[in-house]
């Protein structure tokens, strides 16, 4: 939201490297790991802990285990790879159940809804699950998780 429109990379314009990494920042503004931690936890934002455990956040109740643990994720993947995974996990892990967080094209979905209302999407407001800056923030946080 804070980044200027010119610096922001639109979902349709993502530039991939080796098909799994996105080297360039999506927002043009460095990510803030503290805000990224919030995106990871908040149900209304990334809600990543719905599927992933993170031992670095022992106070967060009810962490899911549908995906791999975040422990050591910053050691396993480079920043560019983490950006690729968070922006479009299905590009990196074909067929993954992990949602695509950076795609604003309703035509790519079957019966896209208006958030959690059960109603049809509104073409005026349909947007990415996370903003460019929120993805930068999450990636910045994930790079700090180098311990197993």
């Amino acid at each position: 939201a804070g980044a200027s429109a010119s610096a922001e990379v639109k979902p349709a314009d993502l530039v991939w490297e080796d098909e799994i990494a996105i080297p360039a920042s999506l927002s043009g503004t460095a990510g803030d790991p503290a805000k990224g931690a919030e995106v990871l936890v908040k149900r209304s934002l990334g809600n990543c802990v719905a599927c992933h455990e993170n031992s670095a956040m022992p106070d967060v109740a009810f962490q899911g285990n549908v995906g791999p643990s975040f422990d050591g994720v910053g050691a396993r993947w480079s920043e560019a790879e983490l950006r690729g995974i968070v922006a479009n996990a299905k590009q990196v892990f074909p067929g993954s159940i992990m949602p695509v967080f950076y795609n604003d094209n309703p035509d790519d979905y079957i019966r896209p809804g208006d958030a959690y209302t059960a109603k049809a999407y509104n073409p005026e407001t349909f947007t990415t699950l996370l903003t460019a800056q929120q993805i930068e923030d999450v990636v910045a946080y994930l790079t700090t998780l180098t311990e197993y």
Binding site: N65, K90, I97, Y109, I110, R111
Partner: peptide, 25 residues
């Protein structure tokens, strides 16, 4: 087996592939 919605999840994603697991609470 249809992956509905912006989260692209089918009934099978949760109840066939991941039963026994936790999704948040």
């Amino acid at each position: 087996y249809t992956r509905f919605g912006q989260l692209e999840l089918s009934c099978a994603s949760c109840h066939e592939e991941n039963y026994g697991m936790n999704i948040r609470a």
